[in-house]
């Protein structure tokens, strides 16, 4: 295997012409997304540039505190983003999303980094940050989709929920169909990527490892671990947030409090 090819500033300039090409197509076809594309491209450069600088710094320090702080910040922003993607809200929705995100990601991330990969020292940023980043990114989607579907189910199919209650269903029995509906929706993206992995697409992390010079089988082993870890994190995160939402919106005696639910 040859030495790694490092990207130079001029390579980035060349790639800029590619996104400008996409912009030209948008203008020619009057897609009306030229401006959004420009903003998105600038954001990509600035956000990734900043996180690159931060990561260089944290990697150089090799101390636990900055890694922990960065992970907590990532959880904070992921939870916030998850709620902002849902169509309805209730008063303590942010707290619920943060807790679900934190518990699922720290539990699954903990097992993967400490037991499966066994990183040393325990906070080694080279492993901990990208692994938790992937968990968070996917958990975010799962939590957002699951929560959105759950709240929509309660709002739109309220009559069905109350019909079950009226015939003596407990809170768990009344909410189970909404919960199942939400969990299925939240799990769809990861199920799809697990089913398509290797056939339709080479997953991003595996591609990255191969580009960085890893032997393909080693990259595959990591990708399998990552897929399983994401599935576990999405399932736990979506389940926790939906259970929490269910308890906020229906009291233990099965009275629905949908007045707490506001559409955006």
């Amino acid at each position: 295997m040859g030495p790694l090819i490092h990207l130079q500033p001029v390579d980035l300039v060349v790639s800029t012409t590619l996104v400008i090409g996409a912009g030209v197509i948008s203008v020619l076809l009057r897609l009306g997304i030229g401006r959004r594309l420009a903003v998105a491209a600038v954001r990509t450069v600035i956000q990734l540039g900043l996180i690159g600088l931060v990561l260089e710094k944290i990697f150089a320090l090799r101390r636990a505190a900055p890694v922990v702080v960065l992970v907590l910040l990532m959880i904070f922003f992921a939870g916030r983003e998850a709620v902002q993607r849902t169509g309805r809200r209730y008063p303590s929705v942010y707290l619920d999303a943060w807790l679900a995100m934190a518990v699922s990601c720290l539990a699954v991330g903990g097992v993967v980094t400490q037991v499966v990969v066994g990183v040393h020292p325990w906070f080694d940023p080279q492993y901990v940050i990208p692994l938790l980043g992937m968990i968070l990114g996917n958990s975010l989607t799962g939590i957002a989709l699951g929560l959105d579907r759950f709240l929509e189910h309660l709002a739109v199919r309220r009559a069905e929920v109350e019909l079950r209650l009226a015939f003596g269903a407990t809170r768990g029995e009344a909410l189970r169909p909404a919960l199942r509906d939400a969990m299925r929706t939240g799990m769809i993206p990861i199920l799809n990527s697990m089913a398509a992995a290797g056939i339709v697409s080479l997953p991003g992390m595996m591609t990255g490892q191969i580009l960085a010079g890893s032997p393909p089988l080693q990259a595959v082993a990591y990708q399998v671990v990552v897929m399983f870890m994401i599935a576990a994190a999405v399932a736990t995160g979506a389940m926790l947030v939906v259970l929490a939402a269910g308890r906020r919106l229906m009291d233990a005696d099965g009275v629905l409090h949908l007045d707490r639910l506001v559409a955006r």
């Binding site: 019909l163 009226a166 003596g168 269903a169 005696d253 009275v255």
Partner: peptide
């Protein structure tokens, strides 16, 4: 109250199914 509803049961307006 779940037991109450099982004994005092509402057949709601608009006949939900």
């Amino acid at each position: 109250l779940a037991r109450w509803r099982a004994r005092v049961t509402l057949a709601a307006q608009d006949a939900p199914v």
